[in-house]
Design a protein around this nucleic acid. Structure first.
Lengths: 333, 333
DNA sequence: CTGTTAGCGCATTCAG
DNA sequence: CTGAATGCGCTAACAG
């Protein structure tokens, strides 16, 4: 790698001041058509690339936003990420995509590095941090949007899906098919959407006059292995279960596998409903009935909201709540 | 967000020079136990966070490496990413994870922003750029590791999987089961691993004395939809096909769906073999026979190699080639 | 063990 | 329309 060309090199080459070059780069201020042309040519010839960090230091804007998710490998988040990235790029921003591996400690670490990187804004998805720690960390960023996580006393923007409604519709669907003993594989204990889905689950049961039985609810990691294990425990202790509502599709697939273990036919012996509608949902056998979440939209809305904040256009102060949609497939017809 | 605390604030607070504070932050040079202690306390009290961009400007090291992949949503790459990230973090580096959406133009754009961010090193996976453009762009980075992509005349490090051997073993397996008319859904035309797998496919056929028929080879995007469509075309034009070797597992799932369309039973009427062994492979029905690729390892080796380069330890100049392993499941027993 | 002097590469004032 | 001076926050290279 040769020595880097700087703005000074370009200025010298053209015989103008650095400032003029800077203006052209940022197409700011008026520069004569002709000078601009010559500068552009010189930039091209010399292969000059402005230093983002020098610009950041001088202007206090890095044109970079941070996106934090628990697991990029999960389609849910990779779709949100795509929505965020596309919209961010279209607006001249780069995205720093960070993984926390569902680990709160890692999440703290990630937020710290992001702070040191002086990002202009942050989109934080499904934070697993407790309220205190979270607000403490968030206060260090110039602009923040929280996705799928609320925070009492927080005045920033929220983008969420209506978990309560989604869970309600899922359980309502199962009740409608005659199920009365419905278990819930509730995902991570710290997950807020988990809690909301639980509340939707309870509410749907309540409406039908069915008593809530906490024994039918088990937490699990949102992956296939953990879910399968927990589903087995549940099926073992409650052989009378005829349906399982699951925190998400990965968990539902785990439930499917557990059913196979127990020699239970899905949906005849056990109906299974997931959440999210990731591509896997229709690829497994039987295909999954699930609540479809507008993931890409979630990302787009989040970044739009963030860009608003960063531009001080406090246009739309209300939080954004997107509705999931029940997709009926084979696992719970 | 309050005004940022700077290193000067900390220095003033403690009554030492900025340099001493700097030394403590970087635990570099000797600082008396006691002063260090006081500085640490002040940092904590004031809530000081060093500015990464200022450090980067001054030290010419950003402690950030870039990781570019065609699609984070693909488990293959998200696993590689995890390997890279974990190892990078463990060594004090942050990772700038970037998506190209399989789009060469987007890839150029991403590399340009990464250059402007002055990353210390780059891990580039499965680049879709042509050789000329690629070497031109790579020369702008201080250290580079190419994953699953070679580049003639390039002197940097390469980390690859043995695609030829993998494809050979897959096709050999099919031939061993008596198949003689084997199609190949070859993935993106620009994909280098696609080309290598094609060569493995041809080589395995050749060894068995079966003539290569280019009509049995079709390119496709590495996703389920495109693969299903292309597989349909292939099955339609060549009803005699008894087996399909697929560029990767996503493509194989597409082939599975196409088989269903054509009312063909897998594996009885049509055997299907994938590549990668993503989690999906054992979740679909029938479960996929596939070549397992050590993805996490790929990431770890890549970043290790990159760190070596960045530290001038040109320890291991040879490229790294990891071997895939055939996993036999239901789709091609 | 600690401080001083520079300057990283650029954008922000202000002046022309 | 263009330029000069100044400093963003930090570290390198020397001193002491």
């Amino acid at each position: 790698m040769a020595k880097r060309i700087t703005i000074a090199d370009v200025a010298r080459e053209v015989g103008v001041s650095m400032m003029t070059v800077s203006r052209v780069i940022n197409n700011k201020g008026e520069v004569s058509e002709e000078t601009a042309q010559r500068i552009l040519e010189a930039i091209d010839e010399l292969g000059y690339r402005p230093s983002g960090i020098a610009r950041g230091l001088a202007s206090k804007r890095t044109l970079t936003i941070g996106l934090v998710v628990p697991d990029v490998g999960n389609t849910f988040f990779s779709d949100v990420a795509r929505g965020v990235e596309q919209t961010a790029y279209a607006n001249g921003y780069n995205v720093f995509l960070c993984n926390t591996d569902e680990d709160p400690q890692r999440e703290s670490a990630v937020l710290n590095s992001l702070e040191e990187k002086r990002i202009d804004g942050l989109v934080l998805c499904s934070s697993r941090l407790d309220d205190t720690r979270l607000s403490e960390l968030l206060s260090r960023f110039p602009a923040v949007v929280l996705v799928n996580r609320s925070l009492p006393g927080y005045d920033g923007k929220l983008v969420q899906i209506d978990d309560v409604a989604g869970a309600k519709s899922a359980v309502h669907h199962l009740l409608g098919s005659g199920h009365e003993s419905i278990g819930f594989l509730a995902g991570p204990e710290v997950s807020e959407s988990g809690k909301k889905r639980l509340s939707g689950y309870r509410s749907a049961l309540g409406k039908k006059g069915i008593a809530f039985n906490p024994e039918l609810v088990l937490n699990c990691f949102p992956n296939v292995e953990s879910a399968q294990e927990r589903a087995s425990i549940l099926l073992n202790s409650h052989p009378d279960l005829t349906a399982l509502f699951c925190y998400n599709d990965l968990v539902a697939v785990g439930a499917l596998k557990a059913a196979t273990e127990f020699n239970k036919n899905v949906p005849n012996d056990l109906a299974v409903v997931g959440f999210d509608d990731i591509p896997l949902a229709e690829l497994v056998t039987p295909s999954l009935t699930t609540c479809r979440v507008p993931r890409h939209d979630l990302g787009v809305r989040a970044i739009e909201s963030l860009l608003d904040q960063m531009n001080d256009c406090d246009s739309d102060c209300s939080d954004i709540i997107l509705q999931p949609e029940l997709i009926v497939r084979r696992s719970a017809p």
